[in-house]
């Protein structure tokens, strides 16, 4: 069983839902990444998504775009990235997911890339521009090695959700809103309906995580109440990283993480 699957089984036994935290590696530098990860561990995050920057992040809003640019300008290359992953892997056993764009994998070759990532300690992938139609080689390379987490959206049809769910492993990523990452339009009724609908379609065969624009404990609470198995918080962490000095980073991230995690524990 993959680390991600195990994590969901473990949480379900404890009657908890998953808090998934996203950070951009190398933003604003390597030290900050390590401190932030330590804060996430301390604060009780369940799964960490590590972003590898791409020059053209077309599914991302201004916050992650900026983090990508800064990280690339600071010289985040794959070697360095995988070394950071290895360091993190030494400190924790929690599932680590790599989030980037298709071209980064395509360029190295899906098999080679996935093997290197797995070797560094990565358990799964999220590629926002990888549609199932183009995923044959990616899926073949990932098989029995890492989880492939596909995204669905509130406008995805029922039959398509079924197809995507079949090709997904680890969890299914429901994009909460029409928009890029980091949007702040508040909780929408269509999102709450989509969560219920997707849960009905997937029949508990795969956990459903909700992300994009999730930024407060209140958001987490509402999505969990609507039936989400996991929530993904990204831009809110990056904002906190941006405004927090290095010596306070670990503790501020831990505090914020705790406030989010609390909402995933059913009482």
């Amino acid at each position: 069983m993959s680390r991600i699957k195990e994590k969901f089984v473990e949480l379900s036994a404890k009657k908890e839902k998953a808090l998934i935290a996203y950070i951009m590696v190398g933003y604003p530098n390597e030290n900050a990444t390590i401190s932030a990860v330590r804060g996430l561990i301390k604060g009780g995050a369940d799964i960490i998504e590590l972003g590898f920057p791409f020059s053209d992040p077309l599914a991302d809003g201004p916050i992650i775009q900026n983090a990508s640019t800064v990280s690339l300008d600071n010289g985040t290359k794959l070697n360095k990235f995988f070394n950071i992953v290895k360091k993190i892997r030494k400190e924790t056993d929690m599932p680590l997911i790599l989030m980037t764009y298709t071209n980064i994998l395509y360029h190295k070759g899906y098999s080679k890339f996935i093997a290197e990532a797995k070797n560094a300690g990565i358990d799964g992938f999220i590629l926002p521009d990888m549609s199932i139609e183009e995923s044959k080689e990616y899926l073949a390379s990932a098989k029995n090695a890492v989880d492939t987490i596909f995204l669905i959206s509130p406008n995805t049809t029922k039959s398509r959700i079924e197809r995507i769910a079949k090709l997904s492993s680890g969890f299914l990523y429901l994009v909460a809103v029409y928009g890029t990452t980091g949007v702040k339009i508040g909780i929408q009724n269509y999102t709450l309906n989509a969560i219920k609908e997707v849960k009905k379609i997937t029949k508990g065969k795969i956990p459903v995580g909700v992300g994009f624009g999730v930024s407060t404990p209140e958001d987490v609470k509402k999505y969990i109440k609507a039936g989400a198995d996991a929530v993904i918080v990204g831009s809110a962490f990056l904002k906190l990283i941006e405004k927090t000095p290095q010596n306070k980073l670990e503790s501020s991230i831990a505090t914020f993480t705790k406030s989010l995690k609390r909402q995933t524990i059913q009482t």
Binding site: L58, A59, T102, P128, D129, M130, S131, E133, E134, F150, L151, I152, S153, N155, T156, T157, R160, I164, V175, Y178
Partner: peptide, 18 residues
Amino acid sequence: DGRFGEFGGKYIPETLVP
């Protein structure tokens, strides 16, 4: 199939599929 030989395709965020 949206391809010219091996080129083309549709590598898009799911929201744009419909």
